[in-house]
Amino acid sequence: MPFARRMLVEERRWLSPEEFTDVLSLCQLLPGPNIVNVAVCVGARYHGVRGAAAAFAGLMTAPFFVVLALGALYTEYGHLPAVSALFRGISAAAAGLVVAMGLKMATSRRLRSAMALFALITFIGIALMRLPLVVFLLGAAPLSVAAALWRAK
């Protein structure tokens, strides 16, 4: 995201800093990876559907083939003891990265402390009780938004 910001705001000047913040806050609210959403928004703003499609393709095409190439290598050599040992280490680190992202988000200013209860309920429902996400969200997300609306009154 810092790279995307530098490119969009400082180098190409497609967005002012304020516009970037505004687009980003919308994109964080919508489903889908934030960076993909930002690309779609900026593309749409300049060239409508074609712009959005072009931005999406530009962002995803190369990484798609890179990740598949890595996947092919992994399938080819993954059964070798050395490679699977390597991967046990890497996947432990990748898990640590996810834990860090969760903790970072949990301690950010975007999480109002009065609303933290909903984070806890979500963790219990999804991680411990293993409820299906769709069912859980249909119940929890409207409640959480309703609580936030009520608090804002």
Binding site: V99, A141, A148
Partner: peptide, 25 residues
């Protein structure tokens, strides 16, 4: 308010993701 309401759910989901992927890995 919509943002304030969705953020805690997102946080809970990210922490749950970290927990589950750790147990898998």
């Amino acid at each position: 308010s919509v943002e304030d309401g969705l953020v805690p759910v997102t946080v809970g989901l990210m922490l749950a993701g970290g927990y589950l992927i750790t147990l898998s890995a």
